[in-house]
């Protein structure tokens, strides 16, 4: 039990929180047809982190988070600018920007010799979920021991705050947000600053991607931004229900994926564990496949 609370519970909760933080803006990305923004964001975080490290010389979460956020915001502006300036399909502009920034990040890592010391590309891609353990936990009693709680992995606190903050902001701005993603022309005629609203959504996505990226890597970030929301979308036409379902699916995928990564090989007698991030992404995708199957057979209950 003590082992579970110290070793398994924190990564599981962190994955679930990352899922919630990503699924929240993910619902609106899905509705505004910008699902691939998550893919772009989670890639551009790398050069931001590397640059922040090179400039400040510190590997603190705060400095790197700021660098990542700056890179994500900068890339969003760049995508927007290139799309307009070169009258290009947004997808193509996105591909140009995120591959360039990601390539720059990799090259910075290798060229400055930073690679392998503080982080490496693999870590950036598939995260480090299994290492986020709670050494101070002695047993269930630690769950209400302030001294032990203070030594929870910082990723857990950060993701909890991010998820909470995003939830609050999205709830506060739900009316202009829904109006904008549903019908931007009408929303503008109603005096809603749709440009600002979309920029806000981009910012929320960047925040979720950065917070999640540091804990779970880029692959899980992309998966959680889109799979739970898309799964929920197939099962309901009501936005409130869709968001609630997407959060439930995100948490379910996190727990199920984590357990499978840790235990599935043992069932086959193989003495090792698998990448938790990869497994959670796989489970999230399988949920979507299941919902698609149900929808294509017309069996999906429209909640």
């Amino acid at each position: 039990m003590g082992d579970f609370i110290a070793l398994s519970l924190p990564p599981m909760v962190i994955a679930a929180l990352a899922g919630v933080a990503c699924a929240l803006p993910g619902n609106f990305l899905l509705l505004s047809r910008r699902a691939m923004l998550g893919d772009a964001m989670s890639h551009v975080v790398l050069p931001g982190i590397v640059l922040a490290f090179l400039i400040t010389g510190s590997a603190s979460g705060l400095a790197m988070g700021a660098g990542a956020l700056a890179a994500a915001g900068g890339s969003a502006l760049l995508i927007e600018w290139i799309t307009r300036r070169a009258r290009m399909e947004p997808g193509a502009a996105m591909a140009v920007v995120f591959t360039t920034m990601f390539a720059g990040g990799v090259l910075l890592l290798e060229a400055t010799g930073t690679a392998g010391i503080h982080f490496d590309v693999e870590h950036a891609l598939y995260g480090n979920l299994e290492s986020l353990i709670w050494l101070a936990a002695a047993g269930p009693e630690s769950l209400w021991d302030p001294a032990a709680l203070a030594r929870l992995p910082e990723e857990l606190t950060r993701l909890a705050l991010t998820a909470l903050g995003l939830g609050a902001v999205l709830w506060l701005f739900r009316r202009p947000l829904v109006a904008t993603v549903f019908d931007p022309v009408f929303a503008r005629s109603q005096g809603i600053p749709t440009g600002m609203v979309m920029a806000g959504l981009t910012g929320a996505t960047a925040l979720a991607a950065v917070a999640a990226f540091q804990a779970v890597g880029s692959i899980l970030t992309i998966a959680m931004l889109i799979c739970p929301a898309a799964t929920a979308r197939l099962l309901t036409r009501r936005l409130g229900v869709q968001i609630a379902l997407s959060l439930a699916f995100a948490v379910l995928a996190a727990v199920l994926g984590y357990v499978l990564a840790g235990h599935a090989p043992l069932w086959f007698g193989l003495p090792f564990t698998l990448s938790a991030s990869g497994m959670i992404a796989t489970v999230a995708g399988l949920m979507l496949a299941g919902a698609t199957l149900a929808a294509s057979q017309g069996r999906a209950a429209r909640l």
């Binding site: 692959i219 998966a223 799979c227 990448s275 992404a281 999230a284 995708g285 496949a289």
Partner: peptide
Amino acid sequence: AAVLSTFYGFGI
């Protein structure tokens, strides 16, 4: 996006 992340995750 869904296919990309799922297949990539399974690949990892």
